[in-house]
Amino acid sequence: MADVVLRGRAHRFEPNDDINTDYIISGRYKFKIDDMNELAKHVMEDIAPGFASKVEPGDVIVAGRNFGCGSSREQAPRALKAAGVSAVLAKSYARIFYRNSFNIGLPVIECDTDWIVDGDAMLIDLEKGKVTSETSGRQTTFSHLPKTMRVLLNDGGLIPHLRKHGGFSFD
């Protein structure tokens, strides 16, 4: 079962909308490196040099619209997770990135993010559907995830789900 309450610092980027998978992890690395911990050293470096050395376990990425657009590379959410990112908060996601994240067990949450300031101490309650900044005291809610996604997260991702049930089991 994935942790229900997540805590970490907020990281915001410029641009905030349409952060694509090339920015998350550049295509020039994905062919050379297949160790996720090595790949994690290069996350976000094209738009936020030094991010990989700043990010701490549990930290949260905060973005605007269409986070993760572009390629289908699953290395994008995997490298974020390997870098220590515990969740992504964005106004919307590109669909392949969204699926990939649940498949590898990274919670990605769709909610208003304009009010979150870079560096805020964030608290995310997946069960209650609440995102809080412990720095500003502000809060927002998000709608309950579809059952398919909840089942996948609970099982630790798609492959563990299939191993556990011997096939798809969402009922």
Binding site: S72, E74, I96, N100
Partner: peptide
Amino acid sequence: MGSADVAA
């Protein structure tokens, strides 16, 4: 889709 989805 991602690699896990296609593997599935």
